[in-house]
Design a protein around this nucleic acid. Sequence first.
DNA 1: TATGATTTTAGAATTTTGTTCTGATTTGTA
DNA 2: TACAAATCAGAACAAAATTCTAAAATCATA
Lengths: 164, 164
Amino acid sequence: MNSKKENTPELQISLDEKDMGILKLLQKDAKMTIRDMARQLNLSTTPVYERIRKMEQAGVIKQYAAIVDPKKIDKGLTVLCYITLKEHNKKYGRKFIQEIISFTEVTECLNISGEFDFMIKVQVKDMDEYREFYVNKLGELDNLSHTQSIFVISVIKATHQVVY
Amino acid sequence: MNSKKENTPELQISLDEKDMGILKLLQKDAKMTIRDMARQLNLSTTPVYERIRKMEQAGVIKQYAAIVDPKKIDKGLTVLCYITLKEHNKKYGRKFIQEIISFTEVTECLNISGEFDFMIKVQVKDMDEYREFYVNKLGELDNLSHTQSIFVISVIKATHQVVY
DNA sequence: TATGATTTTAGAATTTTGTTCTGATTTGTA
DNA sequence: TACAAATCAGAACAAAATTCTAAAATCATA
């Protein structure tokens, strides 16, 4: 098709200590300046800049995101909802997935082992808003077998750091 | 104690449409320039800049983070581990929390309703590394009653967007 | 409905940061 | 050890963030 370098991220990129050092810092504060990072890692700005660029292109850094506090925007209730489907064939699974990811209340959807097929994390204002979601959005899907709602009492830890 | 303005974020800040617009953009791409945001929101740079600053100080924007792909750094296995404690008093609960959040493999810890007390999300390389964690770290805690491990087969959706 | 005070904004000026470039240094390989 | 390739330091440049001033809009009150 096309022999030129595509933007398809390569499957595996080898990262050394310097790359990991950069990732550690950017995970905690994506706004840290390249100069500051260079200082902390005993490097000049060029290698830091080039390494970041490479990791962005390779898909190691997927995104830079502002993390918003759900409580501050009236989305303080988190519910874990477990779901099993009636039909498990590809067609119905795809349809379920397509619809579930379109719900803005759903911040996470995992295909899991065990008793249930999926776990979704739902972020809403309060119990009324959850009921609204549960009845009018989730309840409208036509492939559900059964569900179970688990309510989050408090968030003990929530981090995006995977590099240490 | 101290009557001066502290860096304690106020409990509730009122956000208007412009603030929400800014949050929507920053959630998707924290590196978007203030100029670009201003253009899209039909504002000049100053109000955008000032509103961002306010939301940072108010704790609405908790953090700017580079989101790293776990698969690219050999942390491709996600496990949900459900835990009940033997002792449910404050002292033992605190001790458990203190220890569990210190484990770097634990990226999330939720205090939940239902059969279990906690759900933790564990991010590791493979089954060997999970066993290592399960036996030598989790297993060493002395207040566990019982646990259940649910393995994530695939991540369908994972977002930090809560503003729409 | 007018009016003064407060808040918010536009646009330019300044400062800081990101990005590129060149030559030197290091690293890997035979 | 010698050569080629990759990486890096430091300066130069471009672009962005941040600050400043004055104008406009908003709000509360008479």
